[in-house]
């Protein structure tokens, strides 16, 4: 849960103005050699991207899309304030982070990595913390948002919106290429031993589908109550904390058994190996698009860095 001074993202609202440090670090750590190192900046803990072993999908710079998106928010909110909508600037733009972090595949992408974690998580997913939200039914507000978003992008470059859009598409294409790893059914050479192992642990089904074992599943707790504050023609809702998924006891037991049996059968290792092979093939197939767009994205991110530093 977040404290009153915490927005649920592990950083206090009063620290928002310092959030440009992260984009600065990412940009200087990973791109143009001519980019000056930020002086007198407290460098945060390096991201997983920097520490983890390289993968073919590292050629795609989703982290820079987040930097650009953060700069667009800053510029858009400045423009909106001038258009008599200071509320967005007051709540502060919440820089996105990790929009494409899932492209970095690890064993954790394919379920729990220990029996203890499996028991705690079950088969559900936590609802992540959310930043504040703004809502309005005003057409005038909507028109101003459109105009300010366009102007904010134009400050980064003449084709900034188009390049970003194409790069998001490219990231989603890369993601889609991995879909078979997640979506394909478990082949018999894994399914047979997994089902036998589960049966020995008291869980019986004819198919390796967690939904077919006749157990009840948990949930992520109640939806947060809205709590909207009216500010002019807008309504503003504070950040929502993360809502952990709480499995049932039967689900936890099945998840722990599932972890043991699938790991013994080599299923997660097979998925990871297959994912990395698919990454290599896909990067090869999409190399022209990556080569065309990534340098432009780096350039836009450099410009975005300047915009953020000027706020």
């Amino acid at each position: 849960m977040s404290s009153p001074d915490n927005n649920g993202y592990g950083c206090s609202r009063s620290s928002r103005n310092r959030l440009w440090i992260l984009p600065l670090f990412l940009l200087t750590a990973c791109s143009t050699p001519t980019a000056p190192a930020p002086a007198a900046v407290v460098v945060p803990t390096p991201t997983v991207r920097v520490q983890a072993p390289s993968q073919p999908y590292d050629a795609f710079r989703g982290d820079l899309l987040d930097v650009i998106a953060a700069a667009v928010l800053v510029e858009r909110d400045r423009c909106m304030a001038k258009a008599d909508y200071p509320e967005l600037q007051e709540i502060g733009g919440q820089p996105a982070s990790g929009s494409f972090d899932d492209l970095k595949v690890t064993a954790a992408a394919f379920g729990a990595t220990s029996a203890v974690e499996a028991r705690r998580r079950g088969f559900g997913r936590d609802v992540p913390a959310e930043p504040p939200a703004v809502r309005s039914t005003s057409q005038k507000f909507s028109d101003a948002m459109d105009r300010c978003t366009q102007e904010a992008n134009a400050r980064l470059g003449p084709n900034a919106m188009e390049v970003q859009s194409r790069y998001y598409d490219l990231g989603n294409q890369l993601r889609m290429a991995l879909r078979p790893v997640y979506a394909d059914k478990m082949p018999p050479r894994f399914a047979v031993p997994v089902l036998a192992c589960l049966r020995a642990k008291g869980f019986t089904s004819k198919t390796p589908d967690v939904r077919t074992f006749g157990i009840p599943f948990g949930n992520a707790g109640p939806e947060p109550s809205p709590g909207w504050d009216k500010r002019g023609v807008l309504q503003v809702r504070p950040a929502n904390p993360a809502r952990p998924y709480v499995p049932t006891s039967q689900e936890s037991a099945l998840a722990a058994a599932w972890y043991d049996c699938t790991t013994t059968a080599g299923w997660p290792r097979f998925q990871l190996t297959r994912a990395l092979a698919l990454q290599a093939t896909t990067v090869h197939n999409l190399k022209p698009q990556l080569d065309e767009l990534t340098p432009t994205i780096k350039s836009l991110a450099h410009q975005a860095n300047t915009v953020i530093a000027q706020q």
């Binding site: 899309l65 929009s99 993601r175 997640y182 979506a183 059914k185 478990m186 939904r211 599932w258 699938t262």
Partner: peptide, 16 residues
């Protein structure tokens, strides 16, 4: 999305 084996994965990121 979620698979039959209980794995959650992102299918799409839609920018603002």
């Amino acid at each position: 999305d979620i698979t039959s084996t209980g794995d959650w994965f992102v299918t799409f990121t839609a920018p603002r």
